[in-house]
Design a protein around this nucleic acid. Structure first.
Lengths: 217, 217
DNA sequence: TAGATTGTTAATCGATTAACAATC
DNA sequence: TAGATTGTTAATCGATTAACAATC
């Protein structure tokens, strides 16, 4: 197994997540098989890329009949998900944080935001969007107690670095960072920054260079 | 000039946006010069990459004295910004939409969300987070009237494709898409999808493979 | 069988990094 | 001058795509 884990690229993992979501939709619509060229549209890639991605999860397609959707979902989930539902923490319950609580609620079977943290004492103890809000002081203790190893960072740019440091010291293993600040980590902590401002400025820039067809996730 | 426009890569544009924001911070703190190796930390890249990026905007560094911050900001802005402030539309005033209105308000000198649109008639006419909310029906007319060519899409997955189609038909040039759906466009419309669910699932996945040091924006 | 699709290797493409002469 | 940094080309790396035999 650890021999088989050839370290799959980030890009592939992102696409697998997108495939799976789409496959679940297809399943709901009553489809039961899918071709690589159909899946390729979902990530604006090529059919070859899809087949390559699926190879990595241990392919199970069938020549000229395509892939069986339910099997594919199962295999992708086996790769992406843990055996147990992952507990996630949200740090920063401002505008964005609350929106993320709403966005990531609903029926997810592989993860759940189980706690929110904010430095504003007025917020701790309250239930916000269905999740209990704790004071930042309680963060190290709660992460351990709730077995949280992934956190969503939605604090202002100024405090991002400091809060991230606290998270890392408390043993967090991955951070999805919405603050427009780079986070330094020597250790093996995975950090994904979604920089919404850069993304928007990029869109604005290319709105004027309306030339090429391009990729998106 | 159009000879000089060698088409700069998306990655470079994103980094330039990040550099600029950081440079503005440095300027506020009273610094006036910066080295490429300092800037490289902001995007967890190498100094060579920074110099390469800056080359593209028309470099103006000085051996062993680094780059003059104010000049750099000016040059980057000349590349990224239009002469006039860009008007942006937000489509979908749900939880996420409202958070984005909050997030992208405040003092930006290069863009502004000037209008919001929602299919819920209860929302049109109201002012939400300081922006007037219009009915979706009014979208084509308002885009022209307000000279909007970039839109932020924050509608549910189900309606994303249909709304995107309306946007494209109304002449939009770029879309920053938060809906977890790929948007197809044959034309020269730039589409950037920020898939928050895939990003989170990726973080969760790598929280278990806590091995490598890696890149982020 | 003929036609279409998969699995997988080889070729291509693009982006990042290393290297180093030129410069301050 | 000696030391450090820039600008830029060449080398490297990784990801995407093309191609095609094997298969249904």
């Amino acid at each position: 197994m650890s021999k088989n884990q050839k370290k799959i690229s980030e890009k592939t993992i992102e696409r697998l997540s997108a495939y799976r979501r789409y496959l679940k939709d297809l399943l709901k619509k009553g489809k039961d098989r899918v071709y690589s060229h159909e899946l390729s549209q979902i990530v604006s890639g090529t059919a070859a890329q899809v087949r390559r991605d699926l190879m990595e999860v241990g392919c199970n397609g069938c020549s000229s009949k395509g892939y069986e959707i339910s099997l594919l979902i199962e295999e992708i989930s086996k790769l992406l998900d843990c055996s147990d539902k992952q507990n996630i923490a949200l740090i920063g319950v401002g505008n964005l944080g609350r929106a993320l609580l709403g966005y990531f609620s609903g029926s997810r079977d592989n993860f759940d935001i189980v706690a929110a943290f904010d430095s504003d004492p007025g917020k701790s103890g309250r239930i916000i969007c269905g999740r209990r809000c704790y004071d930042m002081e309680q963060l190290p203790a709660m992460l351990g107690e709730l077995k949280i190893n992934t956190a969503i960072l939605a604090v202002p740019a100024e405090s991002a670095e400091k809060v991230a440091q606290t998270l890392i010291e408390s043993g967090i293993k991955a951070i999805l960072n919405f603050a427009p600040r780079h986070i330094t980590t020597g250790s093996g902590v995975f950090i994904e920054t979604l920089d919404m401002t850069s993304a928007l400025e990029k869109a604005i820039y290319f709105s004027r260079k309306n030339t090429q067809q391009r990729k998106s996730t």
